[in-house]
Simulated assay, not measured.
Amino acid sequence: MTTSTPAPTEAGLDLVTRLNAYLEDVAATLGIRGESCSVDLTGPVAARMRLNWRLPGFPERDVDLMWHEEHGWSAAVATHSGDGHHVVVAYLGGRTVASQPRLVARFADSLRAGEHQDCWPGPPMLRTAGGPSALAKELAAWA
């Protein structure tokens, strides 16, 4: 797992530990390796997991699961420009940004099968970014 981070504080280290554990659980449930995941702690905390399959309707584009500290999980396809930009095709939604790994896997499976009727069409606002301590608390189950 690749992580870009500002200078660590105690709260920041707690967040990194919990977030990495959460993402590792999600990756394991999806059957992918942790090396396919990258984390960005420099702004709103975000993560990306490269999947090893394509979405129906986008057979020539890489697909990633994206995680954002305010919106939770989404699925996105890479643009043709090759500049690392993505276009979000669906959001998981839910009640928390830390959805259970099995729910994230179910979301990915439904997209892979071309069934996204249960997905959110736009970014849900599940929480407001509130610093590393608040986000670490949200990820408390992965201590």
Rank of each mutant, 00 (worst) to 15 (best):
V26Y: 03
V26M: 06
A27S: 14
A27I: 08
A28R: 08
L30I: 06
I32F: 06
I32M: 06
R33W: 05
G34K: 07
G34Q: 11
E35M: 09
C37M: 11
S38Y: 04
V39A: 00
V39W: 01
V39E: 04
D40H: 12
D40F: 10
D40R: 11
D40M: 07
L41K: 02
T42Q: 11
T42G: 02
G43H: 14
P44L: 10
A46N: 07
A47V: 03
A47R: 02
A47S: 09
M49K: 01
R50L: 14
R50S: 13
N52C: 08
N52F: 13
W53N: 01
W53H: 03
G57D: 03
G57W: 06
F58N: 01
E60D: 13
E60N: 10
E60A: 10
R61H: 08
R61V: 00
R61M: 03
D62L: 08
D62R: 07
D62G: 02
D64F: 09
L65R: 02
L65Y: 00
L65H: 01
L65N: 02
M66L: 15
H68I: 06
H68D: 15
E69S: 11
E69F: 01
E69Y: 01
E70G: 02
H71P: 00
G72Y: 00
W73H: 10
W73D: 01
W73E: 03
W73I: 05
S74A: 12
S74N: 06
S74W: 05
S74K: 02
A75V: 09
A75R: 01
A75L: 13
V77F: 05
A78Q: 06
A78P: 04
A78F: 02
T79K: 10
T79Q: 11
H80I: 07
S81V: 12
S81Q: 14
S81F: 13
G82Y: 11
D83H: 13
D83F: 14
D83C: 08
G84L: 05
G84D: 07
H85I: 01
H85A: 15
H85W: 09
H86N: 15
V87I: 15
V88W: 03
V89I: 14
A90R: 14
Y91N: 11
L92W: 10
G93F: 12
G94N: 13
G94R: 13
R95H: 14
R95S: 14
